[in-house]
Design a binder for these strands. Structure first.
Lengths: 393, 393
DNA sequence: GCTATTCGTCATGGCACTAAACAAATTAGT
DNA sequence: ACTAATTTGTTTAGTGCCATGACGAATAGC
């Protein structure tokens, strides 16, 4: 009794066309300026087929020709194709506890317009925050339009749990949001929400990271986004990546979640601040910790070392289970990497023993706090690259 | 700079044909006897297209017609199609520490021929074991051929690490195998090797389990196969699922792997036997433990309860990370489920708190020790169902 | 200037599916 | 019992997409 594998969709000629459009566009995107003949050679399609596909991509403003350029080689020079920097684009939005942000990214992944404002969103009515965000976004979109870009979709990064099927924000504790259904569109664009840690991981992936990694992101809670085979792994119900509640010391202190010895009890915001002797810190506590650590405050450094140790232990379990190519420290903790990494590496080296483990496989995200917003904008861009046929002429 | 997603293969008309063959065959496989019109309705293909595809599938002996049967409804009755039980089949092989086994499974997943012999394979030269296995397999294949079946591939279940890219058995400690390259073919069939725990999980999946689960399998070490979206998840290097070396008590006893407090130190064979007061047990230690537990031996029950507790703690971490639909206890420990489950459930309930967790989501495999062998045979069958075009006329 | 080479396009053909018509086989109704 | 209606499976024509091969265009080397 063979089981239902995936959805069983028949292949059609249109599907074939769709896929080949994506193949050509993806090849151009990945391997820089390429002539039609280059694309044909790389993909296995014929030059004739590539030509026909390029016509369609050109009509949708997805690729542009650079014009014939002397190649130095014998023969007629090719007409190089590149991704259009004036075509469809992605709009990324972010609601943080203390800020709002928006940006537009073109097909090449470059940020072309952005804006950010401080805002006290903790406990603020969602509608109010979203209204202010819409104004911010409108300005960014107008800048982008002036540059010849045409945003094709909007994705909102939320610091909380998002049900990816329904798009409902199940809860975002730091904002006080609960079971919030977002409007379906914003500025005439389809609007989607996604967890910010996931988006940070996607940004990391799409900006050249490896195809399999664990992206640790500590903001409010401690989350881990799993990227598997170039895709974000959401789990059966979309709750994958709750690294913060992996048991580290099974008999440890009781966590807010009810269990004992969760990672958050050792490496969460509250725990670290308490250990550092700054239990009442508020605002940008990460920057505060970094500042004190730079200054050489021993208790702070000690606290971060302990937190890194706990993180490393939990991650060792994750690495043993999931066998990722790399582990990336992102989100707010990226800025504390200097003090967290040594003990994290120590634990990983000691506990990942059954397979080869390179300490350099643990690294700090280069995107910093901008990751989620960038990832949000890139969702739309990647969707276009994956299926160019959705873009109208 | 968009990143390389997957391999970028152009779609061709042959590819379209391949996929639609698979769609039709898969639909027939999943939804029982179906007329061409039924298949067309279910898949969205036209009746004409289905007819053409069925001709090809029939030629490859993959489907057979049952003949027109009165349907009770108005109109010409359909000619029901079912999977052939006389066509291509899969050969599964198994080398255990104390046995050899082989079986042939038809397209419907039914075991049609099997054999099993006791054999002392610990430390035995691999060539010798494989030679005996070949004899066993030959007999099974002859039975299958007499039933009209034609095995199309052989898969060997090995209690050890298999590099899935090269097919080399990196190490199988209990057999004493190390970096062993298996012959490319056996009885004229292409031969592949795969870890037995993975195959057990695949059998579970293909015999109707959910599409996302963690399959715990304790034989020599403790392994966990992750099934994600209906596929076995192997990790970046193929080493995913090392549940046995997830840290449970970070300061615990030193494990053979060099780390401290690995799960194996609490729920591995040695640890459990020692705790049960049977440190010198050998042979079928699982059966021995089960027997003593049934008899009511308190130290044995206590030892199993402790082991279950450690298993549950480690699994709680895994569930928090991976969010599976279910956890299945398979392999040798399946037979000890009665005594392991209560404490496992207790830990899971206490530590999986952030998401809903149903205690029934932890269950014991119904396949028992036959899982890996069945899974091995099913690999070939599934491959045919996934790409029927590989089957010659 | 001539040849060789490479690029992009055009014309032709093949393949796989859709669309529509048709023959076959059954039920329902008069 | 005969006709109408319905459903099945096949047949025929048509469409879309890619492969093949030929052609003009543009360049380097001689």
């Amino acid at each position: 009794m063979p089981s239902p594998s995936e959805e069983r969709r028949p292949a059609s000629q249109q599907g074939m066309r769709r896929q080949n459009l994506s193949v050509v566009l993806g090849t151009v995107a990945e391997y820089g300026p390429l002539s039609r003949a280059d694309v044909a050679a790389r993909t296995g399609l014929t030059r004739a087929a590539v030509s026909s596909l390029v016509v369609a991509l050109h009509r949708s403003a997805l690729v542009v020709e650079l014009g014939p350029a002397p190649s130095g080689r014998v023969g007629r020079p090719g007409n190089a194709l590149v991704l259009s920097t004036q075509g469809p684009a992605g709009l990324g939005l972010e609601v943080g506890v203390e800020h709002l942000a928006a940006c537009v990214v073109d097909l090449t992944g470059q940020i072309r317009a952005q804006a950010r404002v401080a805002a006290a969103n903790r406990g603020r009515p969602a509608a109010e925050a979203l209204a202010e965000l819409a104004v911010l976004a409108d300005g960014v979109v107008q800048q982008a339009v002036a540059l010849g870009l045409r945003p094709a979709g909007a994705v909102l990064a939320v610091p909380g749990l998002v049900d990816s099927a329904s798009g409902v924000v199940v809860r975002a504790a730091n904002l006080g949001w609960r079971d919030l259904r977002l409007p379906e569109s914003l500025l005439g664009l389809r609007l989607e929400a996604e967890n910010e840690a996931n988006l940070g991981a996607l940004a990391e992936l799409w900006k050249g990271g490896p195809g399999d990694f664990v992206h640790v992101s500590a903001e409010a809670g401690i989350g881990a986004a799993l990227v598997v085979g170039g895709r974000l792994f959401r789990g059966a119900r979309g709750f994958a990546g709750e690294l913060g509640h992996v048991p580290v010391h099974p008999e440890g202190p009781v966590c807010a979640c009810g269990a004992r010895g969760c990672l958050e009890q050792y490496a969460g915001e509250e725990a670290v601040l308490a250990a550092a002797g700054l239990p009442d810190a508020s605002g940008d506590w990460v920057a505060l910790l970094a500042k004190r650590a730079v200054e050489g405050a021993a208790p702070v450094r000690e606290a971060l070392d302990q937190a890194g140790s706990a993180l490393g232990t939990a991650l060792a379990g994750a690495v043993n289970l999931v066998d990722p190519e790399a582990v990336v420290l992102g989100g707010a903790y990226a800025e504390l990497g200097e003090w967290l990494l040594p003990s994290m590496r120590r634990e990983l080296a000691a506990r990942v023993t059954v397979r080869p483990w390179d300490t350099d496989a643990l690294s700090v995200s280069t995107l910093g706090r901008g990751g989620p917003l960038l990832g949000a904008a890139l969702v739309t861009v990647r969707r276009i690259l994956d299926d160019p046929s959705t873009v109208g002429a």
